[in-house]
């Protein structure tokens, strides 16, 4: 099925975006990326370890000809820090895309939407393609879209919690109002969660921990690929209406008596 995800005019074959953290090794990550079919992965921006240069580079394990890099501002708590990190990420990756995160609370990792809006406006003005991670609040999502976000990424549940989508109705409302792609970011724990996100109308799903912390990350990556495809197909197909009582699916005529 040719049904690409298009963000800011760029075409992605896969509607699954994956992370690069928490894997047991770079080679497991690389195999999981391949199994997921994702053609965009998110990466964090951190200080180079000056005293130990022996460590392998993450980029040795990402085929950047095939997979787009989405630098993120994970770990930033203010708009200033996020903007600074985004600028460094642009220079390191030679791409003006950014998954914008401004965290407001250490325990829940919920975003600080006020700072997020400020950072979004600044970075859009500087020519960035901004994909902000936010709460599942339809009003905030609309404000981010109005601020120039290329896609909006509401959470399904707290980052790394694996709780699944906590407020399905909000995701549906956000999608209904949106004029930019809606990517469900955070909260997916297993394949059915990804399917539900897509059935609700999300244009894509971003996940890290659900794959990286599975017992078999490579198998889970494939499960997620299929789950996203199944959910998307079901959304496009249009589900049947829910009814209170049974409705026989075999003809009633010709029953032997």
């Amino acid at each position: 099925m040719n049904d690409p995800l298009i963000i800011a005019g760029r075409v992605f074959a896969s509607r699954l975006i994956v992370g690069t953290g928490k894997y047991s090794s770079f080679s497991v990550m690389q195999e999981a990326h391949l199994a997921s079919g994702a053609d965009m992965v998110t990466v964090a921006v951190r200080r180079v370890n000056i005293s130990d240069r022996s460590k392998e580079s993450l980029l040795d394990y990402i085929d950047t000809d095939r997979i787009a890099l989405l630098p993120n501002t994970a770990g930033c708590y203010t708009a200033d820090d996020a903007v600074r990190t985004a600028r460094l990420g642009r220079e390191a990756g030679l791409s003006n895309w950014v998954k914008l995160e401004v965290i407001g609370d250490e325990k829940t990792l919920f975003p600080d939407n006020e700072e997020l809006l400020v950072a979004t406006r600044i970075l859009v003005k500087e020519g960035f393609i901004v994909l902000p991670y936010t709460t599942d609040d339809p009003v905030v999502c609309r404000k981010l879209e109005d601020a120039g976000a290329a896609a909006v990424m509401p959470l399904g549940a707290p980052i790394g919690s694996g709780l699944g989508i906590q407020n399905a109705n909000n995701i549906r409302i956000i999608k209904e109002a949106a004029r930019v792609p809606i990517i469900l970011d955070a909260g997916v724990g297993t394949a059915s969660d990804a399917t539900i996100a897509m059935e609700l109308g999300a244009d894509g799903v971003l996940m890290n921990t659900a794959i990286a912390e599975a017992k078999d990350p490579i198998a889970m990556a494939e499960a997620m690929k299929l789950a996203v495809q199944a959910g998307r197909l079901a959304y496009l197909a249009g589900r049947m209406g829910k009814k209170m009582y049974a409705s026989a699916s075999s003809p009633l005529a010709g029953i032997i008596r």
């Binding site: 994956v18 992370g19 690069t20 953290g21 928490k22 894997y23 770079f26 990550m29 998110t42 990466v43 964090a44 921006v45 951190r46 200080r47 180079v48 000056i50 580079s57 993450l58 980029l59 890099l69 630098p71 993120n72 994970a74 770990g75 460094l88 990420g89 220079e91 390191a92 990756g93 995160e101 965290i103 990792l109 991670y133 980052i159 790394g160 970011d185 955070a186 971003l206 996940m207 890290n208 921990t209 990286a212």
Partner: peptide
């Protein structure tokens, strides 16, 4: 990058060198 050759670092200057590391969200 094009300005690495011409940018001078002096005593007391603050320099940050960063790269990409593994991360999804808040790693």
């Amino acid at each position: 990058r094009a300005l690495y050759d011409s940018t001078q670092i002096a005593d007391g200057d603050q320099v940050e060198i960063v790269n990409f590391v593994g991360g999804g969200s808040h790693t």
